[in-house]
Write a protein that binds this DNA or RNA. Structure first.
Lengths: 143, 143
DNA sequence: AAATTAGCTTGCATTTTGCAAGGTGTAACC
DNA sequence: GGTTACACCTTGCAAAATGCAAGCTAATTT
């Protein structure tokens, strides 16, 4: 993992959050897990934004180190691992939803995840609760 | 301004948002304006996290270019400029609030902005509305 | 036992960040 | 009106992060 980016010990919650997910890739990995039900390295590699292998593994290790994801062996495929969000990771749901709402309002070209945006608009709290629930494979339907 | 970071034309609202504020500094500048009522370059330079001058001006220019802040001459001090959030910028309020909530729940050391966190807990929608309102000097009291 | 799959590691070029010093256009002071 | 100070930057360079391509290892399939 690339040298841990300097932590700003100012006690500010905004700075704390940015120290963990304030970069161009971390929240995209979270998105893949939370909204598209992805769970493995190879599935993450399939994301549209073409993340580089070293960046992906770096972010996965950082997320694991911060306690946002758990990594376990896939019992059904011993050469694969399963990455799953912890509660701390699932608690990012509202942040992700607010980003989607903001971009939905301010970017005409944000056509992906429109099903998600519709769900948010229809029942924000219900959908957020769904995302935070522990069961897996939730987001498979999101496009 | 440093070469415009590559835009990911995937149409994903999460990626779109990250293209604009997915770095370690942009949302801290927004925080200074929105929660602490700061308006000038020198006031931003006073932030606890010690932003470098070139990074600050780079982010201010990017925010202006993206239409999140307006830059005007200070009518009362011709050598100063005033940076103010546009509606698009103020609409980031919920994202900032959710980050504060998340860190408040997952970082014991996030002691700054506790007054903000209390306000959010007491009346989330009211406080968000207050932040989104057009009048200035709102956040002066936040610590 | 050869090929394939899944998950990485490594080396190197490019880009961004961070740090320190310097420069420019008001404005205030003597 | 000359010096000083303030506010806002600019520039040069080192360090770190990102991006790209190739290669490597262990588990599995053929």
């Amino acid at each position: 993992m690339t040298k841990k980016t300097k932590i700003r010990q100012t006690g500010c919650p905004v700075a704390f959050g940015l120290d963990i997910f304030g970069d161009r890739w971390t929240l995209l990995v979270i998105r893949e897990i939370m909204l598209r039900g992805k769970r493995t390295y190879s599935e993450f590699m399939e994301m549209e934004e073409e993340i580089a292998t070293n960046i992906l593994i770096d972010r996965l290790k950082a997320l694991e180190a911060e306690g946002l994801v758990d990594k376990t062996r896939d019992p059904e495929n011993r050469r694969s691992f399963l990455y799953a969000l912890t509660k701390k990771g699932r608690d990012l749901a509202p942040i992700l939803l607010e980003i989607i709402i903001w971009s939905g309002a301010h970017d005409a070209r944000s056509f992906a995840l429109t099903d998600v945006l519709e769900k948010i608009k229809a029942d924000r709290d219900g959908f957020e609760h769904e995302l935070r629930s522990e069961r897996e494979n939730l987001g498979d339907r999101c496009e």
